[in-house]
Design a protein around this nucleic acid. Structure first.
Lengths: 241, 241
DNA sequence: TAGCACCTATAGCAACGCTATATGAAGTGC
DNA sequence: GCACTTCATATAGCGTTGCTATAGGTGCTA
């Protein structure tokens, strides 16, 4: 099979890279393999994508579209925290369905250089968590919650990918998922206010904060709003005891 | 600087690889760099370590000794769950102190091939969680808890490594850590028995299970013990509702 | 027809992981 | 003292990698 059709070389390169990546079985994919499958020579690749990583980034971007589409399709259920669960599961499933692509996206960590896609995924989850915050269901700032949940989500997915497919136990995922969501949710047993349950004023502050930032309210001047948000922020972060 | 001293070439190779890995700043480390710094030619490397990955594995093994030493030094505080917290923090700190080494150890994920070190780290954490289970402080099986906590621990550490050093916020770590530990611990607010709080009989069963496996009790025959453990296991996993 | 972007191909560089082969050193039996 | 095996290191080079200096072709506007 090859992509020698009438498609433009750029598209052929993208498809060839995606296909080789998906079927490489963990082995490295070389530019020569890609260009040969695409029916193109090396300089074409570097003309369109700069370097190998640029091509992979483009493949990743396409993969991320798919990922985001999956995340958004399941979104509006009315119960934000339930949507977060589905986002989590969709994330894991995406990783297990296309492990090579996932590893390029989330597994290629290098010091001090954050993959752009991580920020995108965080933003996506934060957006969802904001709805939970507005509904008063969140215990911590949406951004912190998103970072924390996504970190655990990536860790679990990487672990599952590394396991032999026959031994994969999705209970690891559901257990970690519920632990993280429960930890950031406001409806914990409110019987022990000193340890883990935050007081309702904190929850209210977080909800108000999220609502304010979402609505771009004009009822306060910008300087007033700034100070107000700073107070809220202080309250929200106070009882970390 | 070079390692041309009177040390044997094998040692010089290990030290050269470790040093280059620590100072590479994320860039790849080549065998030629290593052999040159060690004052040795290529075949010597392959004679002693088989291939590049073999050498890295050896470096990782040495790094893991250090990691384990750090984990064990802080261990016996009498409060197992507090020890788990310290294990978590030590894990993160190890990753941030030696990011390159950590990435070779935990970041080099490939499908269906689990790094041996992950299993070791899991065993280490499971061992610690067993103490918590014996003390009746655990909500789930120690093995499942260990896998879950370690997955989150690795995910958080990778995220922190990927961030610019100036932006690193350790709150991500402590927050995720406490979420995970709280989720597996038995002393959650027992006011809501239907949702997250497990009934005390389950906690007792898990504690008993851990105690039995630790003590190699002779008061039951092996077949009796086997059946008994099976029942315990069934009870422990029952109320996942 | 001339000029000008844009795109692609030829050919090849430097660096990579790794190895076939040979040489030196150290111990062992006679 | 001498052949013999064994282990450890070196010389030289193979095949592949990511990437590029240079040049040629194509289609557009003038």
């Amino acid at each position: 099979m090859s992509f020698d059709g009438q498609l433009p070389p750029k598209t052929r390169l993208l498809r060839a890279a995606a296909e080789l990546l998906a079927n490489s079985g963990g082995a490295a994919v070389s530019t020569r393999q890609i260009t040969q499958l695409a029916g193109v020579t090396a300089p074409t690749l570097y003309h369109h994508f700069g370097d190998k990583e640029g091509l992979f980034d483009a493949v990743v971007a396409a993969g991320f579209e798919e990922y985001v589409a999956g995340e958004r399709d399941f979104a509006p259920s009315g119960h934000p925290l339930e949507d977060i669960r589905r986002m989590w599961d969709n994330h894991v499933q995406f990783g297990l369905n296309q492990p090579e692509l996932y590893l390029v996206m989330f597994g290629n960590i290098r010091p001090e250089s954050r993959p752009a896609i991580v920020a995108d995924a965080e933003a996506l989850m934060e957006e969802m968590l904001n709805k939970a915050a507005v509904a008063g269901q969140l215990n911590v700032q949406p951004r912190e919650a998103a970072r924390s949940i996504l970190a655990a989500n990536v860790g679990v997915t990487l672990m599952l990918i590394a396991e032999p497919a026959t031994e994969r136990n999705l209970e690891l995922s559901t257990m970690t998922r519920d632990a993280m969501i429960f930890a950031v949710s406001a409806d914990q047993a409110s019987g022990t206010p000193e340890d883990s349950g935050k007081s309702s004023v904190v929850v209210a502050a977080i909800a108000l904060n999220a609502a304010l930032q979402a609505s771009h309210s004009d009822q306060l001047s910008s300087s007033e709003l700034k100070l107000f948000l700073e107070w809220l922020h202080r309250i929200s972060n106070s009882s970390t005891s």
